[in-house]
């Protein structure tokens, strides 16, 4: 942002345009934060009877360069709630941090694990109130005593929509049809894992911004189970 200071009379000599006064990033910097590290991504979550399965690829890129080939895009919010993040890594990390803080406080006051919808709503509050400033898409999924396994999607504008399964990130567009074809309501846990791994693998095979491994998380009333599938052992591709 260029700042005009009427009180200072001396004209300021601009050699380089900075992102903001005092900010070390130059506008023409290849690492300019607005271009930033972004999780061009494939993430998804599916609800099944008794829990949810979350999945994500592991590629994080800055422009063309793979900044991290084994990144973790699924973040734990509570013992039985996780979030898949996509969009700007900085934004979604900050958001997750805030929500972890508020959800933690809430859990202490409540004296029992918080509801998945509560977590999703906290994300929504931040996403909606700062929609002009954020590039963040979230899939919140988990299990709670009252409503069982649930998946909530919070897309760019900050709406909150419950869905039986959600997919987001740059890769999601390539597999929308595949998911419509292979998704069946009432799948078992094993079938859900297969559905997630297969879908994400196909997205990674077609989306340049997605790739690497597939990480999956299964959440049931018994807790959280984390698995991964190495990049050379995918059901399809790379």
């Amino acid at each position: 942002m260029e700042v005009i200071a009427p009180r200072s009379t001396a004209p300021r000599r601009e050699f380089a345009k900075h992102v903001e006064e005092g900010c070390p990033y130059r506008d023409d910097d290849v690492m300019a934060p607005e271009k930033g590290v972004s999780t061009g991504t494939t993430i998804m979550a599916v609800e099944f009877d008794g829990g949810v399965v979350l999945g994500a690829d592991t590629r994080t890129s800055t422009g063309q360069y793979v900044a991290n080939r084994a990144s973790r895009k699924i973040t734990k919010m509570d013992e039985r709630i996780c979030v898949c993040r996509c969009g700007s890594a900085a934004d979604t990390q900050a958001l997750s941090g805030f929500v972890q803080f508020y959800l933690g406080q809430h859990a202490v006051e409540l004296g029992r694990p918080p509801a998945v919808k509560t977590c999703a709503n906290l994300f929504k509050i931040f996403a909606y109130n700062n929609k002009d400033r954020l590039m963040a898409g979230m899939i919140v999924a988990g299990w709670d005593e009252k409503s069982g396994g649930q998946v909530y999607n919070i897309p760019l504008g900050g709406s909150l929509i419950r869905v039986p399964f959600a997919c987001d990130g740059s890769g999601s567009g390539y597999i929308a049809g595949l998911m419509d074809k292979t998704y069946r309501p009432g799948m078992s846990k094993a079938e859900c894992i297969e559905f997630v791994v297969n879908s994400v693998a196909h997205a990674m095979a077609r989306d340049g911004s997605s790739g690497g491994m597939i990480r999956t998380v299964v959440i049931t009333k018994d807790g959280l189970e984390e698995t991964h599938m190495e990049g050379n052992k995918l059901p399809f591709g790379p």
Partner: peptide
Amino acid sequence: SVYTDEIPPEV
């Protein structure tokens, strides 16, 4: 409005 559920009476 923050947590979506009704406030527990204890709280």
